[in-house]
């Protein structure tokens, strides 16, 4: 593995009394695709949001491209320009057209001129297969199209790292494929990607590594065929069996600290 692009050291995060992350260590190399899986409440989204400081960690360090994101004196806006983020709810700007969604951040943040921003916007819309929607408004697009525009918007900033926070969880099942195809293409081009997801097929086929989180810690970290195919930990096996075959799951009692919800 080359120099780590993302490096997380002893990361803790609490919301009040609720300890969501309890000591995370994780390194992601340049060009690596890492899928983070785990039950809801396991802290995986919080971990992702700590990487670009949308959540401020309680303790620990995060480095992206050699810069310490958690340094109180860091120019966080400059760091975030290098980190693209895709949200579960897309978060397109509804008052702007698709093209303006891509050009406004380039012009305001990167100070690109109008022509250059428009050219880069068009390139990235073509990249996600939505060149013909350039003048549409987000409300007129399907969820899958909105999410692809959101990916294009992040890519137009020229990021070195892309974070995906459950990018397909809000989509109708038949629209998931288009978004995953765009992400697969990105992975093939060598983008460093950290993906919080429930899409096991994507994790198995595209990820270089799969990280299983539960209760605010990393339980298992390894190649997809190991973690998904032959998990070593009971908690991982339990989670995967419920995920892959939900119809067979039994009703469980809530037992704290036992492969449960991550709540104390």
């Amino acid at each position: 593995m080359s120099r780590p692009e993302i490096s997380v050291r002893d990361l803790h995060k609490s919301f009040g009394d609720n300890q969501v992350l309890r000591g995370i260590d994780l390194e992601i190399g340049q060009g690596e695709v890492v899928c983070v899986i785990g039950p809801s409440g396991s802290g995986k989204s919080t971990l992702l949001r700590c990487v670009n400081l949308l959540e401020e960690p309680t303790k620990g360090q995060v480095f992206v491209g050699g810069t310490e994101v958690t340094d109180p004196d860091v120019d966080i806006d400059a760091v975030r320009r290098r980190i693209g983020m895709v949200f579960q709810q897309f978060n397109l700007f509804p008052h702007l057209s698709v093209t303006e969604n891509l050009t406004l951040p380039q012009r305001r943040v990167l100070k690109r001129d109008k022509a250059q921003a428009a050219r880069i916007a068009a390139e990235n819309l073509a990249r996600v297969g939505l060149a013909e929607k350039a003048d549409a408004y987000p409300a007129s697009l399907s969820g899958g199209q909105q999410q692809r525009v959101a990916i294009a918007r992040a890519l137009a900033m020229g990021p070195e790292v892309m974070l995906f926070d459950e990018p397909t969880s809000a989509l109708d099942p038949e629209l998931v494929g288009d978004v995953l195809a765009v992400m697969r293409g990105l992975a093939r081009e060598g983008m460093t990607m950290m993906v919080v997801t429930h899409e096991m097929t994507f994790a198995r086929e595209v990820a270089d590594r799969v990280v299983f989180m539960d209760g605010g810690v990393i339980v298992e970290d390894g190649r997809p065929d190991q973690v998904i195919g032959a998990p070593r930990h009971e908690r991982t096996r339990h989670f995967l069996s419920r995920l892959l075959d939900p119809a067979m799951a039994e009703v469980e009692e809530d037992v704290p600290d036992q492969g449960g919800t991550g709540r104390p």
Partner: peptide
Amino acid sequence: GQTEAARSLGFS
């Protein structure tokens, strides 16, 4: 989410 999206793109 609108503010978060803007901030993640590097807006102050």
